[in-house]
Design a protein around this nucleic acid. Structure first.
Length: 567
RNA sequence: GCGGUCGUAGCUCAAUUGGAUAGAGCAACAGGCUACGAACUUGUAGGUUGGGGGUUCGAGUCCCUCCGACCGCACCA
């Protein structure tokens, strides 16, 4: 991955000048107006240069000559137009119709100076006033969090971090689905566990939630209330048990999220929305827009008007709103609070996307709700698929995974693939503290730099942090690393634009790889104090970028790696 | 049956959203520590991007069509 670099202080300024000069050259050579904007991108293959523009390819037809010839003519005018460009452009060549540009070392040295100066703020965007609601992780409050939530939590939290870093005002939201029939099931299941404490043969509901995680909750309830529910009628114990179970399970889910390094701005209870009259308000708003009709005693929403397969019930014939009805209200509220809403949902929610899109359109905000689906996860251990059956109750929970592989590895592994591809999670590999494990590779780079800094004379480090000696960085491995570091701002922006935190994970690996190569080629702490200062500055800015990347991903940046013996 | 997502090296995944010779990591093979952490690094090998058509200067990416995997298609959530 090699995104465009737009760092204002260094290469970006150079690029702007180059693009402007090329634009003038194009205007002189190609007739007509409304010429396409001259864009520079980093080519996939860096042998071509630091940046490439395809203007000649785009304009060839209008200029009535082959792209390559046009590229040559553009470049001739380019330098004639502004001879001082030769100071920042070390090379500009036409090849296959592309215009390839290599920047002078000064541009990259400048980038390192900028990183040292701005530190953890390097690449941070100024608040632009955009408000985004980001909902993810949400689970039914009927059991512990499982693997798929680990994936949505990792994706969502990393995206939220990246958005905030870009200056977006993000509200992270967790919806507690506590208004449906599953709460009754929870209440009955918990009641059975409660009774089983004294009557082991008390029947467990057919459709109840299996697994023994409700047992300790039942014990706490018995410790609090004793046996008094044993003789109570169902109409009394059911709401009490459902509410107690929900509160306990939500609290446990919350602890798991915290263990995972994820916090939420808003824990939205669906039941509370009903109680506050929000659901009626949302439905009334649709009614005003003429998007509802009654049929068979139920209220339908005209979602087909917005491309859905069929109209959807939002209030049942018995008067209770459906899940969609509640979501109308919830998103009506979201869209008032935010400019757009992003949801990360599990793989079983495909069919729901069209309905959410309908809600946005119904409130005159088409496209304001976007849905990202996190695909299925297959767990593998020792080369074998770990069977998971919710029915049988032998589900591996997110806590189990955290126990087994730790937070850093879990967070990292969950964001590596694109959200819309299925993920194979190899527990054995994630647990392994070896070079096979990409998260350790990146952390090792960070720890290695920390180690160098511990060894460096304090006054040398001080000079390095001030940017001394950076102009001495000329080795290809030094310039490649500096160039990579300068990609950080654009990488973060690309993460936000594409809702793709995997790009950040891969970027961090590239930074680590470039650093290790630099480390092999260049001795940092040597006899030449100025050169050492420059290299130390480069190393320190690498450490900053690695730490920032890992932090945004929710992964720690250790100052030292603990060596563990592998069996 | 209808709709959605996906299919890329032996394995796990990329590919700047239409750009150049499709890239990393593991696994395999061959090298590199009396140097700041070898949890590192250098190189070799590995591909008809599921198949076939089309769109154009240019396709892993867009369109059509088959094949295959997964997921949806409730007055469930």
């Amino acid at each position: 991955m090699s995104p465009t670099i737009t760092d204002e202080a260094a290469s970006g300024a150079a690029l702007t000048r180059i693009a402007a000069a090329l634009t003038r050259a194009a205007a002189a050579l190609v007739p007509g107006d409304a010429l396409p904007e001259v864009v520079f991108e980093a080519p996939r293959n860096l042998d071509f240069g630091d940046f490439a523009s395809n203007v000649a390819l785009q304009l060839a037809k209008r200029a009535r000559r082959p792209p390559q010839q046009l590229a040559i003519e553009l470049l001739e005018r380019f330098f004639a137009d502004d001879p001082s460009l030769r100071e920042i452009v070390s090379e500009a060549t036409p090849l296959g119709g592309f215009i390839n540009v290599r920047l002078a070392p000064l541009a990259w040295q400048h980038a390192v100076a900028t990183i040292l100066r701005e530190g953890a703020d390097y690449g941070r965007g100024a608040p632009a006033g955009e408000r985004v609601s980001l909902e993810f992780g949400s689970a039914n409050p009927t059991g512990p969090l499982v693997v798929v939530q680990g994936r949505t939590l990792s994706l969502g939290d990393s995206i939220a971090n990246a958005m905030r870093f870009c200056g977006i005002d993000v509200t992270t939201e967790w919806i507690i689905n506590d208004a449906g029939s599953q709460l009754d099931t929870l209440g009955r299941s918990l009641y059975a566990r409660y009774r089983q404490l004294t009557e082991p043969n008390f029947p467990f509901p057919e459709d109840g939630y299996p697994g023994d995680y409700l047992v300790p909750i039942a014990e706490r309830l018995r410790a609090r209330d004793g046996a008094r529910w044993e003789s109570a009628p169902e109409s009394e114990w059911l709401p009490a048990f459902a509410a107690y179970g929900r509160d306990e399970l939500v609290a446990e889910q919350r602890v798991t999220c915290e263990r995972f390094g994820v916090g939420f701005d808003l824990w939205q209870s669906e039941k509370a929305m009903h109680a506050a009259g929000a659901v009626e308000a949302g439905i009334a708003a649709l009614r005003e827009r003429g998007l509802l009709y009654d049929e068979d005693g139920a209220i339908f929403m005209r979602t087909t008007r917005f491309g859905d397969d069929k109209d959807r019930v939002i209030v049942r014939s018995d008067g209770r709103p459906t899940y969609l009805g509640a979501d109308v209200a919830y998103h009506y509220d979201k869209l008032r609070r935010a400019d757009r809403a992003v949801l990360i949902l599990g793989p079983d929610h495909h069919g729901y996307i069209a309905r959410l899109a309908s809600i946005a359109a119904a409130f005159d905000r088409p496209g304001a709700i976007s849905v990202m689906i996190a695909q299925q996860i297959t767990l593998v251990r020792e080369g074998e698929v770990v069977p998971m059956s919710k029915r049988a109750g032998n589900v591996l929970t997110l806590d189990d995974i955290l126990d087994e592989v730790g937070r850093d590895a879990a967070r990292y592994f969950f964001v590596i693939p694109n959200a819309d591809s299925p993920l194979t999670f190899d527990l054995s590999l994630a647990k392994e503290q070896s070079s096979d494990n990409p998260v350790f590779y990146v952390q090792y780079g960070h720890a290695r730099i920390a180690s160098i800094e511990r060894r460096a004379p304090p006054e040398l480090l001080e000079r390095a942090l001030l940017g001394e000696g950076l102009t001495r960085l000329t080795d290809p491995s030094e310039l490649a690393l500096a160039r990579r570091l300068a990609e950080f701002p654009e990488t973060i922006r690309s993460v936000v634009a594409g809702l793709a935190p995997n790009r950040l994970a891969r970027y961090a690996q590239s930074v680590a790889a470039d650093f290790h190569q630099f480390y092999m080629h260049c001795k940092v702490l040597g006899d030449d104090a100025e050169l050492s200062a420059g290299r130390l500055g480069l190393a320190h800015s690498t450490k900053l970028i690695l730490a920032n990347s890992l932090t945004l991903l929710g992964v720690s940046s250790p100052e030292a790696m603990e060596r563990t013996e592998s069996p």
